[in-house]
Structures are given as C-alpha cells and as structure tokens.
C-alpha cells in the first residue's frame, strides 16, 4: 500500500465526513468548515490516486494548487454572506425555525 493510496482513502473519508457535516449542521460557520474539509478530501483523492503507483505527478499537483486558492476565495465569499446575514437578522443559521443543536 503506497502513501498515495493511504491518503486517497483518507480523502474519501474526509469528503464523506464534510458532506454529512453540511447536511447535518445548521450553524453557518461550521458548515463552511465542513465545506473546507470536503474540499481537502477531494484534493487528497486527486493527488493520492494519481500517485498510487508512487512517484510525483505534477499535473494533479498543479490543479490542486489552483484549487486551494479558489477554496480560500470561496470561503471568504461564504463568510461575507454569513456575516451579512448575522448583521441583518442576528441569526447564525439559514432558517429561522431550524435552531442549531450545537
């Protein structure tokens, strides 16, 4: 078992964890965390799977590099929307009835 495969498998679990988090969690900041965990899982799968036979593969590595920068930009935009919602309504979840269990 190569380190590529180990981290690709970890990436798959992280992706599923983030997905479940987005569905289950109401608090917007935590949802953004879950979205980032999901993205990191996808990045690990991309690079890990391409390198499962060993040896670095620059093509997925370059794509993940762009992905990381886009992820931080989308995180900032999501945070801006969440903060705006909080400022206008005082809420930290999307729906008024769905109170966050956390």
């Amino acid at each position: 078992m190569s380190s590529g495969l180990v981290f690709a498998a970890a990436g798959a679990v992280l992706f599923a964890m983030g997905l479940a988090g987005i569905v289950l969690i109401g608090h917007l900041l935590r949802r953004i965390l879950a979205f980032n965990v999901m993205g990191s899982g996808a990045f690990l799968i991309l690079v890990g799977l391409a390198q499962r036979a060993g040896g670095a593969d620059p093509v997925p590595q370059a794509m993940v590099l762009t992905g990381i920068v886009v992820a931080v930009a989308s995180t900032a935009l999501a945070l801006a929307l969440a903060r705006r919602l909080h400022r206008l309504t005082g809420r930290t979840t999307l729906s008024a009835t769905d109170s966050d269990p956390e």
Binding site: S3, A56, V64
Partner: peptide, 10 residues
Amino acid sequence: AWARLAAPDI
C-alpha cells in the same frame, strides 16, 4: 500529508 505525497508546492 502533502510533504509525504512529494508535493512541496502544495
């Protein structure tokens, strides 16, 4: 993990 995957750029 990225260092282990031989991806110093990432």
